Amino acid sequence: MRINKRVWMNPPRRTGSIKNIIHAQRNSTVGKSAVGTPQYPGAASGLTQSQSRQLIREQPRVTGIPFVASAGSFTINNIEIPGDATLFLGLMFTPTGNAMDTFTMAINNNKIIDNGSVKLHSPDNSQSIKSQYFPYMQPLTGKDVLAFQLQTTSGLTGVLQLHYI
């Protein structure tokens, strides 16, 4: 029997086979996305990353401020909304309110609503509400201070919802 010395002395090399076996755990794809899987939201809809970021930035958001106001005057000062908010959309009160209850809203010491009706700005105002808030669009700078002053005859308990982008 004749042995080919060339094959015996120099077996064919499998490139990286031993390294692959040693490092198999480190190179594991467990918990990782498959190659070619989009790594950002909106990619499945065909959006680019910049379009997806723009869409996220333009999503309406809501901040709820719970309050308990006794009869008389009640102030909600220094309401902070996120610094990346660019547009105040509007508001809604969740308590039904008395017909005589009023409020004043100011953004950066600029009165937007003066003696507005709490009952009119709540969901059960006997009107058909067409959106999730009552619109009072105002531009925001990122360092805005919102303040509300309530005048109530019998007291109120509820949540003031602020809608913004």
Rank of each mutant, 00 (worst) to 15 (best):
K5N: 12
I22F: 04
F67R: 03
S33L: 13
T96G: 04
S154F: 09
T48H: 09
V30M: 06
R2D: 14
Q49S: 10
G158H: 01
Q54N: 13
K5F: 13
K143F: 13
E58V: 00
G16Y: 01
Q149P: 02
H121A: 10
P139F: 10
K143V: 03
T152C: 14
Q127P: 00
H121P: 04
I81M: 08
T86C: 05
K130P: 00
F103L: 04
K32P: 06
G46H: 14
L146A: 07
W8S: 15
G46Y: 15
Y136A: 13
F134Q: 13
Y164N: 02
G97L: 07
H163C: 01
S128T: 10
G42N: 12
I165Q: 15
N10L: 11
S28V: 00
T86F: 08
H23P: 00
A106S: 14
I79H: 12
F88M: 11
Q138H: 12
R57D: 14
T157N: 13
Q127W: 01
L146M: 15
N20L: 08
I113M: 07
G116R: 09
K19C: 01
A44T: 15
N108K: 00
V68C: 06
N108C: 03
H121F: 15
G46Q: 12
F88C: 08
N20I: 06
A44E: 14
Y136V: 12
L120G: 07
S17V: 12
T141C: 04
D101R: 08
T94P: 01
S117I: 07
T75D: 13
G116N: 11
L47F: 05
S17E: 10
A44G: 15
L156A: 03
T48Q: 07
G158Y: 04
L160K: 02
S126P: 00
L120P: 00
G83Y: 09
P11K: 10
R6M: 15
Q138W: 11
K130G: 07
K130M: 11
N78G: 13
V30C: 07
I165W: 05
W8Q: 14
G72Q: 13
P60G: 08
I3K: 11
V35W: 09
S33C: 03
I22H: 01
L91K: 01
D114T: 12
P82G: 10
F67I: 02
S52G: 10
I81T: 14
N4T: 03
V159F: 08
P41N: 02
I112C: 01
N109D: 15
S28F: 03
S52E: 06
L140A: 07
S52V: 03
T37Y: 12
T48C: 08
F74P: 04
S117D: 10
H23F: 12
S70H: 09
Q51I: 11
L87T: 09
L162F: 13
N125W: 01
S126D: 09
